[in-house]
Computed example of a mutant assay.
Amino acid sequence: MNTRIRILAAACAALGLLPAAHAADPAPASDWTVPMSVTLVSDYIFRGQSQTWGGPALQVSIEAAHSSGFYAGFFASNVSDHWLPGAAVETDLYGGYRTKVADTFGVDVGAVYYMYPGANWSDSPFTGFNARNRLDTAEAYVAVSWEWLTFKTGRTLNEYFGWSTNNSPVNGGFFGDLNAGVTGNTRGSHYFELNAAYDVAEGWNVSGQIGRQIVRHSTGLDISYYKVGVTRTLPDGWSAGLFYSASSEPNAYKDFVSLDNGRSTSDIAKDKVFVSVTKAF
């Protein structure tokens, strides 16, 4: 290139008439998202029943989701050994596949494994009701959603949190109702529930839930549960919620005697207001 051409090229570049050198290509978007959250709740209520004997819980949740629809996650919370013999912590592993069939219709199929490290029904203080049996439970589930409504159902693949005729029998397993109790193998216990979550304004969401838990081969232990609440999204990933939980309150869960000391009592499934504060990352 002679001197005249070089001068002309430099002038064109200065005037922006020549394409600039290629900028570095942006990094491709990842196929994975990994949301994480930490939540403090004033009571950990699971299907209408307090898992913390009415006390607060600190919970951690993390999930890895792929753009294909496959996902896996982990959840942890403190729990009470008054209700779950020998348990201090619940750790859940779950995974599955979720997809959109249409813009407003989705399907989610998966399984969850509830684990209680070191916990066992042998930790119960009640002689004759403390045969060795772990609480760990596997459960398969399927959910279908339409816009802001979701219907979900699940079924246990082993005994329901270790409940058996050895630790939760009729005539002695539940002091609130001596006619209530387990009559056979609780594998195959199932639940179904309808959930709603609707954004009523920017940063405000109202939610509701109605469900029923069926404990297979039992009497007096099935429970219906309900929940309504409102959640406010706050800056920097924070949110706060106020909820009201209620249930059909079977007599078996009223004045439930502690599985830790055999003396304290609590209405496990009583109606209750609770609050939550969450930080999402």
Rank of each mutant, 00 (worst) to 15 (best):
M1E: 13
M1Q: 14
I5M: 13
I5F: 09
A10Y: 13
A11N: 14
A14S: 12
A14R: 15
L17V: 08
L17F: 14
P19D: 05
A20R: 09
A21N: 10
A23L: 13
D25F: 15
P26M: 09
P28T: 12
T33Y: 12
V34Q: 04
M36N: 14
M36R: 15
S37A: 06
V38H: 12
T39L: 01
T39I: 08
V41T: 07
S42Q: 08
D43Y: 12
I45T: 00
S50R: 01
S50D: 07
Q51F: 12
Q51M: 11
T52R: 04
W53H: 06
Q59V: 06
I62K: 11
E63T: 12
A64K: 11
G69C: 10
G69M: 07
Y71G: 06
F75H: 03
F75K: 07
N78C: 00
V79T: 00
S80W: 01
D81F: 07
H82I: 01
A87P: 01
A87E: 03
A88F: 13
A88N: 15
E90L: 06
T91S: 14
T91N: 14
T91D: 15
D92F: 12
D92S: 00
D92I: 08
L93C: 07
Y94H: 15
G96Q: 02
Y97S: 10
T99Q: 06
K100V: 10
D103A: 12
F105V: 12
F105G: 00
V109Q: 04
A111L: 14
V112P: 00
Y113L: 06
Y116C: 07
G118F: 06
P125E: 01
P125A: 07
F126C: 04
N133Y: 07
N133C: 01
L135R: 05
L135A: 07
E139A: 05
A140V: 15
V142A: 13
W146A: 10
L149K: 04
L149V: 11
K152D: 11
T153A: 15
L157Y: 05
E159W: 03
Y160I: 02
G162K: 01
W163E: 11
S164W: 00
S164H: 05
S164Y: 02
S164K: 09
T165K: 10
T165L: 01
S168F: 07
V170G: 00
G172R: 13
F175N: 14
A180K: 02
V182K: 03
T183P: 03
T183K: 06
T183A: 03
N185H: 03
H190S: 08
Y191E: 05
Y198M: 05
V200K: 10
G208R: 06
G208L: 04
R216T: 05
H217S: 09
G220N: 09
L221I: 02
D222R: 00
Y225D: 00
Y226L: 04
Y226V: 05
K227Y: 05
V230E: 00
T231V: 12
L234V: 04
P235R: 13
D236H: 15
W238V: 01
S239V: 05
S239W: 04
S239K: 03
A240I: 10
L242Q: 05
A246E: 08
N251T: 11
A252P: 00
A252D: 00
F256I: 09
V257Y: 03
L259D: 03
D260Y: 13
R263D: 07
S264M: 02
S264I: 02
A269W: 07
K272I: 09
V273F: 12
F274C: 09
V275N: 01
V275Y: 01
A280H: 13
F281S: 09
F281Y: 15
